[in-house]
Nucleic acid binder design. Sequence first.
DNA 1: TATTGTTATACTCTATAACTATA
DNA 2: TATAGTTATAGAGTATAACAATA
Lengths: 157, 157
Amino acid sequence: MNMSPDDIQVEDVDLGDLEHSLGFLLRIGQVQIFRAYFRHLGRFDLMPAELSILWVLHLNPDVKQGAVAQSLSIKAAHMTKLIQKLVTGGYVVRTVPEGDRRSVLLSLTDAGYAFVAENADVFINLHKLAPGHLDPDELTDLSRLLRKYIGYEGGAT
Amino acid sequence: MNMSPDDIQVEDVDLGDLEHSLGFLLRIGQVQIFRAYFRHLGRFDLMPAELSILWVLHLNPDVKQGAVAQSLSIKAAHMTKLIQKLVTGGYVVRTVPEGDRRSVLLSLTDAGYAFVAENADVFINLHKLAPGHLDPDELTDLSRLLRKYIGYEGGAT
DNA sequence: TATTGTTATACTCTATAACTATA
DNA sequence: TATAGTTATAGAGTATAACAATA
């Protein structure tokens, strides 16, 4: 018979309305995007969250650590560990500003900027490389609906 | 001044095209759905993954453990722990079938069925209770696009 | 007193490999 | 030999609280 290990008897399992449940669909979508991430950017020792921090720093030099954490929905305690890794890796530098010596400002090293310049486009547009089954217009719609759903009423496109 | 701890200086952080990146939007969407889950169903000691297993079992009595795991993208090793917890909690029973004594069939106890009957609707339709900013038609579109994106070409609605 | 970031702990989920018992 | 499930371990992510330094 020689069935591939991927189609054992899955069709036998009825998911019912779970298949229409946003929570479930978001999770499966994320699993697939993660696979695409590791296929295209897995050779670096950086997780998606870390790459998104580098991206934000390249757009916002000398931004407060807490502001980055909050804008990316990363908890403060976790952020500390991520930044330590990025500093150790030579991508990020920390500065304590004169104005408020409790806080920490983050910015990219030259290596950090070079890394972003080289890999940001693949990272930001992973969904176009993923095995997605949507045409460009549908991708735009999906992105817009998701933005609206989560309350990023930002713009049109 | 009295700023709430939630709007520190977030508007100062420019996310650029990350805001249009599907990976990022899926993650933020999941964070929000999780919050809705714990608001509405957090009083039970069950995680979303566990509730989705109960849901699948109520639709597929005596289904193989591995088939459930695969249909929900749960790894086998993790599935073992989840099922142990659900058995301990009195929601699920395991049966070793005569035909293939390596495998395990899962089904719900009466308490499991009662739990699903009472809470499944809230679980499956969490996105309607979440602070979502979409009207019903947009929610349907979003669900359809996500299903198509992940390759669940199933049906129209 | 309140805020920024750090440390420490615990739990969920994922990934992997080694193991058992069956087939 | 291959398959179904288990056990064990490690890493990533999240949640929480206690803490130090600063405001």
